[in-house]
């Protein structure tokens, strides 16, 4: 009995922190999602499910959800593929690979706001680096409006997200690649397997757990992206880059509709929980042992 009490003393600080910083705000947010609180007034009315109805029928929310899915698809595809290619190229033991890995990892240590500001200038149609490149090639008129064209703006930001985090995911793949016993590949080579066949039948299946981690992490990360979009476009032009997190922010702090913003957050929580659950299932299904 005493031992159990002692154990509780050790668990208590963590539990308290979790309760104060996570459980209480989450429950408070859930409560406010059923009110018309404006974030400043001391009083509010209970409005039932009205906020959920408003948010789900909001044209901007629907656009934000669709943008979020496009952003996620682009980031997951781009980041996974690029980090895998880099990992395959740099997983060996040559001396030059170490600084190269560090170089590709470098953007991951920059703050997202800095990354957003840097790329805002890179994409600028007047003084931007990319525009300069097009000018140099004599193709001034051909440069697209990277973040100004509503059709490509979300993908331009997705490319920045990929640039910033590919190095980080490359490290996960390299760890996975270095864990594959060399004799398996040697055996496959002796059996006459070419490079592609060895990758497809030996390397990739054994790399599946790393791939699942990369995909799971990237999916959640891209869904939660806020600072990059906030810094680069603030959801514009004409909501072309508005995602759920920026939509919630705008509801709360531009429109002072904290009740609706809380309802949006609760829906977002459910969405993320569902995604995480699906990924956990996928993680178990793909586990390979040898």
């Amino acid at each position: 009995m005493r031992k159990r009490l002692t154990l509780w003393v050790f668990v208590l600080p963590g539990l308290l922190l979790y309760a104060v910083l996570f459980v209480y705000p989450a429950l408070a947010g859930l409560f406010y999602s059923f009110t018309d609180w404006d974030g400043l007034s001391p009083s509010f009315q209970i409005t039932g499910w009205k906020n959920y109805d408003t948010v789900l029928h909001s044209l901007v929310f629907q656009k934000a959800l669709w943008n979020n899915l496009k952003f996620m698809a682009a980031v997951v595809f781009g980041q996974t593929l690029l980090s895998l290619v880099l990992a395959l190229l740099l997983s060996g033991n040559r001396r030059i690979y170490v600084p190269l890995r560090a170089l590709f990892f470098f953007p991951a240590i920059l703050s997202t706001v800095s990354v957003g500001l840097i790329w805002s200038f890179v994409y600028d149609p007047g003084i931007g680096l990319l525009q300069g490149l097009f000018n140099l090639l004599g193709a001034e008129g051909l440069a697209p409006s990277w973040v100004g064209d509503r059709r490509i703006a979300i993908y331009s930001i997705a490319a920045v997200q990929v640039w910033a985090h590919t190095g980080q995911m490359m490290i996960v793949f390299i760890a996975g690649l270095q864990g594959i016993p060399a004799e398996l590949k040697d055996a496959a080579a002796i059996d006459g397997g070419g490079r592609w066949r060895i990758f497809r039948s030996v390397t990739w299946p054994l790399l599946a757990p790393s791939a699942t981690i990369v995909i799971a992490y990237t999916t959640i990360q891209s869904f939660k992206a806020f600072d990059l979009i906030f810094t680069m476009t603030d959801g514009g032009p004409n909501n072309a880059t508005e995602i759920i997190t920026t939509y919630i922010y705008h509801l709360a702090f531009s429109s002072y509709s904290f009740g609706e913003a809380s309802a949006g957050s609760a829906l977002f929580l459910v969405l993320l929980a569902a995604l995480t659950w699906l990924q956990f299932k996928a993680l178990r299904a793909d586990r390979i042992s040898y």
């Binding site: 600028d124 007047g126 003084i127 440069a143 409006s145 100004g148």
Partner: peptide
Amino acid sequence: FQPNALGTKDAAAGAL
């Protein structure tokens, strides 16, 4: 307006 005005931010427009 300057080309691709929708992609131009305050600081860049000011610079022009």
